[in-house]
Simulated scan of single mutants.
Amino acid sequence: MMRAAAQLLALLALLAGSAAAADVPPLVATLAQDYIAAHPDARPYLEPTVAASYAREFLDGFLAPDGSRSGGPALSLDAYHAGQAYRNAHPQALNAILTGYGYVRVNKLGRWTDGFEVSLFEPEDARGGWWVGYLRRQPDRPEPGRVRMDGYLSPEGEYGHLGMFRHQVLAISITAP
């Protein structure tokens, strides 16, 4: 058990540089460890991979509380549905979970482009553009152009088509300035 805990801590340190998460909230680390304990066939050689996969899939489900997924490994489905269930049961935990994954709340002016295979926000006070995702289905929003973007900025990673963006902003609202 101590070895598993040490491996999980090492895994969480490795996740600091991943596109999916800068950190893993304690709740998710506990759920991942519980999954590993309940699936001894996944150990010993896959333990870090199992925990990392669980953490990524949980976040995917948490960000898509009304989404659906079928097929694929049992771990993916279990973690995805656990993320959805947690978001739906605890909507007030949005900030705690996202900041636990390394996201930072932002409210910025900039230029927003939205079209076929592109959803780009270029903040006026920062270099580079951010891929735009949504925390709820199609928030109220103006026409693309100069806007105020309120949401959560991801840790550095690979986002959007082919991982072309270093950050993603998960929009809560997009409004005219």
Score class of each variant (00 low, 15 high):
residue 91 P to T: 13
residue 87 R to W: 05
residue 157 G to K: 02
residue 77 L to K: 03
residue 28 V to A: 06
residue 60 D to N: 11
residue 76 S to K: 15
residue 128 G to P: 04
residue 73 P to R: 14
residue 65 P to T: 03
residue 58 F to W: 04
residue 3 R to S: 11
residue 130 W to Y: 14
residue 110 G to K: 11
residue 168 Q to P: 02
residue 16 A to E: 11
residue 42 A to V: 11
residue 70 S to N: 05
residue 40 P to L: 05
residue 177 P to L: 05
residue 147 V to M: 09
residue 150 D to K: 10
residue 14 L to S: 12
residue 124 E to C: 00
residue 45 Y to F: 15
residue 174 I to L: 07
residue 19 A to P: 06
residue 45 Y to W: 13
residue 141 R to E: 12
residue 134 Y to D: 11
residue 85 A to R: 10
residue 17 G to T: 07
residue 64 A to E: 04
residue 153 L to K: 04
residue 55 A to E: 01
residue 113 T to L: 15
residue 14 L to K: 08
residue 62 F to T: 00
residue 158 E to C: 04
residue 70 S to R: 04
residue 110 G to T: 15
residue 117 E to N: 09
residue 113 T to K: 13
residue 62 F to D: 04
residue 165 F to I: 03
residue 85 A to Y: 07
residue 132 V to Q: 00
residue 157 G to R: 01
residue 43 R to W: 05
residue 37 A to I: 12
residue 79 A to D: 07
residue 152 Y to K: 06
residue 125 D to T: 14
residue 163 G to I: 09
residue 141 R to M: 14
residue 93 A to M: 14
residue 138 Q to I: 13
residue 177 P to Q: 09
residue 97 I to C: 07
residue 47 E to Y: 03
residue 110 G to P: 08
residue 157 G to P: 02
residue 89 A to E: 09
residue 121 F to L: 04
residue 139 P to W: 13
residue 31 L to V: 13
residue 155 P to S: 08
residue 97 I to R: 01
residue 13 A to T: 14
residue 152 Y to A: 08
residue 28 V to C: 09
residue 41 D to G: 14
residue 117 E to S: 09
residue 94 L to N: 07
residue 67 G to M: 08
residue 127 R to T: 13
residue 40 P to D: 07
residue 81 H to L: 04
residue 69 R to L: 10
residue 52 A to S: 15
residue 34 D to R: 15
residue 156 E to V: 09
residue 9 L to T: 14
residue 135 L to V: 15
residue 2 M to L: 13
residue 14 L to F: 10
